[in-house]
Amino acid sequence: MNELVFKYLLRISDSGLILAQRISAWTGHGPFLEEDLALTNIALDLFGRSRSLLDYAGNLEGKGRSEDELAFFRNERHYYNHLICEQPNGDYAQTMLRQAFVDAFELLLYTELSKSKDQTLAAIAAKSVKEITYHKRHSFSWVKRFGNGTQESFTRLQNAFHELWPYTGDMFEPIEGETDLVKNGFVPDLQKIKTDWEKIIKDLLEECNIRLPENVYMHSGSAKALHTEHLGFILAEMQSLPRAYPEAKW
């Protein structure tokens, strides 16, 4: 069971880590100063959460791997983050829509995880719920502004939607053996979360005059650590120092 929980922890911690790595690229380059600070706050929350989860995963695994060893010394085929998290930042509409998709998903997921039979996971999740509630408020506000702002912002939001939508299905792909975790009350059933998520996103996008398409082909694979080509570059950059100087302490 520990092995299974370990893998599940990687799945959720990696998603936060890779998304944070993506959005922190905006720090110093945001559309205006206040928003620069706001998005950085979200990146800080996500990195912080991933640290807690990786730390716990390392303990559970029992091989003495630290949060940093798990973050910096695993390659693409051992990363389980959702495909959507590794997609490029694009313009601000794409960054915010990606964030809204993930925030809505995470709020549902972590709310359930805060009731997990696993006490440590439940505690981390409870703290995260507060953070994610704010992230969602922020990203949803922006998506509405873009949907109802100018013609240009609407077009950009629509383009972002077409770009990102096929990666949303992947968030609801369970890892192998996840049903056992569900049965034991450790983690929630993703199918249930999916229904709620679709409703929330449908309402949000309706406010933006974007209709959800039907029968779009959904990419998947991240539950088996199969990724788009983007992840390799993210990891190459992120892991470069610890891998170049494995003896060094920072």
Partner: peptide
């Protein structure tokens, strides 16, 4: 993007944010 530990990354991000 290249901070060599997660702790170092958090600290640097918070510092750069402070500058903003």
């Amino acid at each position: 993007s290249r901070a060599p530990s997660l702790r170092a990354k958090l600290v640097l991000l918070a510092k750069v944010q402070d500058e903003g």
